[in-house]
Design a protein around this nucleic acid. Structure first.
Length: 220
DNA sequence: TAGGCCATCTGGTCCT
DNA sequence: AGGACCAGATGGCCTA
């Protein structure tokens, strides 16, 4: 596979080789004082073989000088290239770490029945909603405890693990399977600040549950 | 085949 | 100066 970068680098490598004889404005400004070619210095082409020979040696010397500088520029180029490669490597590792973090986040979220892997954005939004739902559960539990009224069910019917430590993904959580038998999803919001609501029966209605019912990506 | 998702590269900017 | 972070570009893979 030839990536754009490889192409670029191959180009760069070629260009670095070409530096030796590439005529640049910079070179002009720096060499005009002492490396003007004989032709340009006298304003006319060399007339005799001797002149020609002299020009040849001058050119060779000039090329040598240019080669010397090219080596310098080539070195700089190599340094730049290695620096870029190191930066790419760090960036790759950084993104891998980010993905690892996302994976660990996925692992503590309830598993979907069909074991569909959440996308990155879905994972983040799902986690946001899940945290919100757990917070609401705790808040309602506190309220109930303070009012001493524990008649009505706090959690969604069959929601056995929402108050416990999140089950690892793959370790099938009863919440995931039982949620499908929960009350019908009468609530769905696009407001990211309120991903869940309490329905008329006091049950916690979350977007998460809604998605379990319908697998509607739009709720994310 | 179009569109979504993802990995990677890259250059710019900010921070230490 | 060098690393971290970020956003844009690009190309590959997969799915409807």
């Amino acid at each position: 596979m030839c990536t754009a970068m490889e192409t670029l680098y191959s180009d760069m490598d070629n260009s670095s080789c070409d530096y030796s004889f590439t005529h640049t404005d910079d070179e002009d400004s720096r060499s005009s004082s002492h490396t003007a070619s004989p032709a340009s210095s006298c304003g006319k082409p060399p007339a005799s073989p001797a002149d020609s020979l002299q020009e040849t040696t001058a050119e060779l010397q000039q090329k040598k000088r240019r080669r010397g500088r090219a080596r310098k520029q080539g070195t700089v180029h190599v340094v730049k290239k290695t620096r870029r490669l190191k930066a790419n490597d760090r960036e790759r590792n950084r993104m891998h770490n980010l993905n690892d973090a996302l994976d660990s986040l996925r692992s503590v979220l309830p598993a979907f029945p069909d074991d569909t892997k959440l996308t990155k954005i879905e994972t983040l939004r799902f986690a946001h909603n899940y945290i919100w739902a757990l917070s609401e559960t705790i808040r309602i539990a506190d309220q109930r405890q303070s009012t001493k009224s524990r008649d009505a069910p706090l959690l969604l019917p069959g929601l056995s693990c929402i108050g416990e430590a999140p089950s690892p993904r793959g370790n099938s959580c009863s919440w995931a399977s039982s949620a499908s038998s929960a009350s019908s999803p009468s609530y769905c919001t696009s407001d990211p600040d309120s991903p869940a609501a309490i329905d008329d029966f006091g049950y916690l209605q979350t977007d998460v549950v809604y998605r379990y019912h319908n697998f509607v990506p739009s709720i994310f």
